[in-house]
């Protein structure tokens, strides 16, 4: 799946900016510095905003395209922000044959966003992930650290309501 790119406005705090600068400074001149820089940046911001990728490229003296290429290659990196509640639907083989794609469709319809996107109010973000090792409960989704198993699409509404209320 092609990585989605967030066009939501970018905000950062002075603390975040300072942390990123320190991370880049610590990696400068090292071979293969892009990967650890991206990891640290994602820890700081929760995702990889465009502005942050530019800062990494400038700071490490590598091309922006190289940084973008690495960021879009590895599924661990996200170019879209995570919501207050992050939903992950397993599309691994077991979940998929048990209909997790229908669960995902339902979430897409209810939230009005595609996988790898975040709702405008920042409440929910959605991703389709690979096997999380809970095949016995297939089809499975997680909300934050909570696992929901043996789902049917209709379950989605109830679960969402639970979190929207919080």
């Amino acid at each position: 799946m092609q990585k989605r790119i967030s066009h939501l406005p970018f905000h950062d705090t002075p603390e975040q900016a300072q942390k990123l600068d320190a991370a880049i400074e610590g990696l400068k001149g090292q071979p293969g510095a892009v990967m650890p820089a991206l990891h640290q940046a994602q820890d700081i911001y929760g995702y990889l905003p465009q502005e942050v990728l530019k800062k990494i490229a400038d700071g490490l003296g590598v091309s922006l395209e190289e940084v973008f290429g690495v960021a879009t290659f590895y599924s661990q990196f996200s170019l879209t922000p995570k919501g207050r509640n992050h939903i992950s639907v397993c599309l691994g083989t077991a979940c998929y044959v048990k209909g997790s794609d229908k669960v995902l469709d339902r979430l897409v319809a209810k939230l009005g966003i595609q996988p790898e996107e975040c709702t405008e109010d920042g409440e929910f973000s959605l991703t389709a992930c690979r096997c999380i090792g809970a095949c016995g409960l297939a089809p499975v989704m997680t909300v934050n650290d909570e696992v929901y198993g043996r789902l049917v699409p209709e379950d989605v509404d109830k679960i969402l309501a639970q979190y929207a209320a919080k």
Binding site: K3, S63, E65, E66, F68, F73
Partner: peptide
Amino acid sequence: SVIGANNRGFDTSIGCA
């Protein structure tokens, strides 16, 4: 260096950042 490979697997394509 304005072009490179973006994404991975079947989705890989040559493009800009």
